[in-house]
Every structure is written in C-alpha cells, then in structure tokens.
Amino acid sequence: MAIVNLKKREIECKIVYYGPGRCGKTTNLEYIHKAFKKQVTSEMVSINTDGDRTLFFDFLPMELGKLKGCDVRVHLYTVPGQVQYTSTRKLVLRGVDGIVFVADSLEVRREKNMLSLKDLHQNLKEYGLSILKIPLVLQFNKRDLAKEGIPLMSAEQMEKDLNKQLKVPSYPGSAITGEGVGKTLQACLKLTIQSLKKELSWND
C-alpha cells in the first residue's frame, strides 16, 4: 500500500516489475533510468551476479510531480525471475501498489511466462491481494527479435495465454531498444494513481 504522509504532503508508492528469469525486467529499469533522467531521483541499485542475473532485486526511485498538492514518489523494483527465489519475490511484493508483468515473447519461454504469472497470483494471494484487482499491465517484451528470425509468439497467442481472464492493458515492447517501455510504465502509473485516488477517496 502506498505510504501517504499528509504532514509532509508526500505519497510514496511501489511498482514491481515481475516476470520469468531473463525476460527483461532489469533492462526495462535500465532504460527508464536512462530515458527518464528528470524524474529519476538517484542511482539504480542492482543486486546481481557476474552473469547479470538479478540476485535479489533492482531499485529505481522516481518523482512524478504533484497529486492534490502532494509530491508523488514512485519506487520501481524488479524481482529475481529464477524459480528458486520464491521468498525473495514475495518479500519484494510486500506493499506493492502496481505491477508490470514482463512476458518473454520467445516461443521457448511460453511455459515460463505462464508459470511466473501463476507464481505472481499465488504470492499476491498470500498478501490478501487479488491479481484481478491490483493495477496490472502486461508487456510482451523482445519483439525486436522477430527480425532475427527467431520463433516468437504472436501477440494474439500471448493475449490468449496470459490475458484471457485478466483483461488488463498489454503492450508489445523491446526493453533493449526502449520501444514500449515508457508506454508500459505510464499505463501502470495511470492505473496505480487511479487506484490510489479511489482508495483515498480523491476522485475528481
């Protein structure tokens, strides 16, 4: 849940990038770090291995301006995607306000996407949250690899696999080139702010 400090007029919310291992969560944050310099308030913190796999999480703080006179701060986190890090993913999810689920478009990663979404559902459930209610956006990453001739899933296939029941906004993307990264984040922020306004009864 977002932290609202009315005395200091600050709102702090947390967005988590979730998805299977090597789907591009960290690359999303790296692109945001480079492309949104004005909003990013400090260095990105990554706890990873020499092989560049996220060992614990990445962290990127941003400032988004004002909402009803309050400064809005957003903390972006990623989770480690590898299956064995269940407890770390759960810890990072604590108090989450919005989620970007990064799915890997590579055909060979189809099952991993579905398992990761199931893992997200389970972890949210353990915090008493519903995947159907939390602000959530999907990103179908690595679309740029289509030109390499590598087998990719079609957007329709991915919609069917991952978004049939959720029916949340989804965006094709390429975190490495930045395509769709901003759109995905903006959509998630929009949903998160809407949800926050509703929670605080700040509806326009």
Binding site: V45, D50, G51
Partner: peptide, 26 residues
C-alpha cells in the same frame, strides 16, 4: 552462474533497501 550465487556480501545501500521493504505495509 551457479557459483556466482555464492556471493554473500550485500552493500550497505542494499541492506538498507532490504530493511525498508517491510515499511511499505500499512
């Protein structure tokens, strides 16, 4: 990669972040 996982040291900044992960819960 398997050996890389045996990297036990967390920086001060990282430890602070781990500590603060719980502060999000209302």
């Amino acid at each position: 990669n398997q050996q890389d996982l045996k990297t036990p040291k967390l920086s001060k900044k990282s430890q602070d972040l781990v500590k603060n992960l719980s502060s999000y819960s209302k």
